[in-house]
Design a protein around this nucleic acid. Structure first.
Lengths: 358, 358
DNA sequence: ACTATCCGCTAAATCGGTTTAGTATGCTCT
DNA sequence: AGAGCATACTAAACCGATTTAGCGGATAGT
């Protein structure tokens, strides 16, 4: 029954085997795998191998086009050089910009990343971090997504978490953002302002609203309940902003300034205002938030509070890699604050009937 | 950097320090790794293991929160359940929409994917497929990117390749697309049309232009060289369309219809036209291409030829998975054609001075 | 002459699973 | 009693790398 080592069967060798392995390369050279590996990785342990042999090894590797299998390497080294990125929705301008920043830095440093989008489905939000960790990611970046538990690798959140242990938060200076917008509107003479709040599930909604109220108080602006609406629904189309702006208009309450939760809803708002016969910016000034790519190319071009999204992605990636390479119990930043800026374009103008009143 | 309050609470109930391995689980149960593995994977070979033992194993796995390491599993099985997606640029509406479709299908089927973007840098276009294959991807999807060689896994291209062996192309029916646009403009009475061609590096540029010429011929439309401009530069902002439209205007040649290479450039074109005092659509009708998300929310809303981008992503993923699971030498589709549709919005209207002429 | 080091490598363990072949035991059947 | 078979598992090879310990011979130092 010992037919195992009785020589290679006539045709049993699997022909379309994968590309060159370390073993075949070593055999080809008549050396051990260890020697080849040491040389190829320029390990300090290879110092005792003469230059001539090293050259031979490297040349053969090049000729046979040897490329080490990362799976095997990762398994052995317990380093996958892979991280996981969790976003609500890929095709949204917000996430795409952050991802673009993340990618830039990650690929530069030799890391790859998995992307998953959960579309706000809570079972996916729970499951994905686990699945990613099964795939041995060394860290996670969560964009606008709050995990409650189950994360055992370094985690960096871009506008998401609050006070969860183990998380580094990249957050916008929200009070500064709110001040920028409201000061701008106030300076233009606006006194009656309407507001579009974010959806309940968005992690930015609450903080931002608090900041808006804070800034309003400082500036002596009164916020009227009937001039505050909230986005609803999971889609990310301007339609949402369009709908709630109609509500605003239907309330009959006068307003000349509108501060939207994001650019997408601001775009819908402009649409609704225009349909109602209110010109932007002559009758109503609209300020958006985020500065997504198409904000600049709206008509009128949108005045907006810019979040440095790409930069936030870069910072998230940098911070994560630092945490990954740091010793296990090293301290890490709980919070990194980035600054917004106001981009004034054409959707805001002096309030009607207020020529330089202020 | 900020320190957290006073570190973790002393009760330190660490849920699971190092995640449980198959070995520790087997030891805990007093069984061999083989038995545990067979049961957990519901392998047919587990049929001789009594139900009671199986229950015990599964219960222990659940209690200890055992999750098999995918790296190890992939290495042994030679199946990584991972694919690679190569795009020119993540933060572009086009790629993001395709990716969203890809993701949908892939994650449903238990696959994960790596994303890389090359920003048209040729050394990256060469290197990435290799790096991805080192990471044992089972297949590749290339979006608007042409690889010349070095791909040994199934490859599906979304609007990219031509006639490269081993590639499945997902392509738009370009001649239909061109006909839709030109018939629409012709029906509105337009006779003098301008065209914005795509950048040299975009794989769609050539085919699309051929289709446009074909459709123009069929419709008896003459294409004037001075009314044809080409996008230049790697950015993907409307700025590009804005610039070339200025050229068009500077040529002095009369035109009432403009067919742009994509929505982004159409948006820039509208801007330029308007600045030159030409109203859209009263003076000039503009047709875009792609139907990216913000096309609908431009002012005026953009009439455009819609590519079913999300669906193309889904088809790409489906096709790739089929190819991956098919036997090595099975035939595979060389080309899958998807149909465009015309989305008529507000940027096109009857040609000036042509009341129902046709 | 004897130990110490250096040189140029190799053997073998290891990462964490999957999978094949096999073994010990008990039972049935002739 | 012995063959045949099912049951309930286990041992060990294997995937493709990395990495540590060590070996045999040459040279150097004392």
């Amino acid at each position: 029954m010992l037919r195992s080592k009785s020589g290679p069967a006539p045709h049993a060798r699997k022909p379309a085997r994968q590309s060159v392995s370390l073993r075949s390369l070593a055999e080809h050279l008549g050396l051990s795998q260890a020697a080849v590996s040491l040389v190829i990785n320029r390990s300090p342990a290879a110092k005792s191998i003469p230059q001539r042999t090293q050259d031979l090894i490297r040349q053969a590797a090049r000729e046979l086009n040897y490329r080490p299998n990362q799976l095997a390497r990762s398994l052995r080294q317990q380093r996958s050089y892979t991280i996981g990125v969790v976003v609500p929705e890929i095709s949204e301008g917000y996430a795409a910009l952050v991802m673009s920043g993340i990618e830039d830095h990650l690929l530069e440093e030799g890391y790859f990343y998995f992307v998953v989008s959960h579309r706000h489905r809570s079972e996916l939000i729970e499951e994905y971090p686990l699945l990613l960790q099964q795939r041995a990611v060394e860290g996670l970046i969560a964009v606008d997504t709050a995990f409650t538990e189950g994360v055992q690798v370094p985690l960096v959140a871009v506008s998401g978490h609050r006070d969860v242990p183990g998380v580094t938060n990249i957050v916008l200076n929200h009070s500064q953002a709110a001040s920028l917008a409201l000061e701008h509107l106030t300076a233009l003479g606006h006194r009656n302002m309407a507001f579009i709040k974010g959806q309940e599930f968005s992690s930015d909604t609450a903080v931002r609203w608090d900041s808006v109220r804070g800034a309003a108080e400082v500036l002596g602006i009164q916020i009227k309940d009937r001039l505050v609406v909230q986005l609803e629904g999971e889609s990310s189309s301007p339609e949402l902003g369009y709908q709630v702006t109609k509500k605003l208009l239907a309330s009959g309450e006068l307003f000349t300034g509108l501060f939207a939760f994001n650019d997408i809803s601001a775009i819908g708002a402009v649409q609704a205002l225009r349909e109602a016969g209110r010109r932007v910016p002559q009758d109503v000034s609209v300020v958006g938030f985020d500065d997504i790519q198409s904000a600049a190319f709206q008509n009128p071009a949108l005045t907006t509070v810019r979040q440095p999204l790409r930069e936030m992605g870069v910072i998230a990636a940098e911070t994560l890699l630092q945490r990954i390479t740091a010793p296990p119990n090293a301290p890490y930043p709980k919070e990194i604050i980035v600054e917004p800026s106001l981009v004034v374009r054409a959707s805001t103008a002096t309030a009607p009937g207020s020529s330089r009143v202020s």
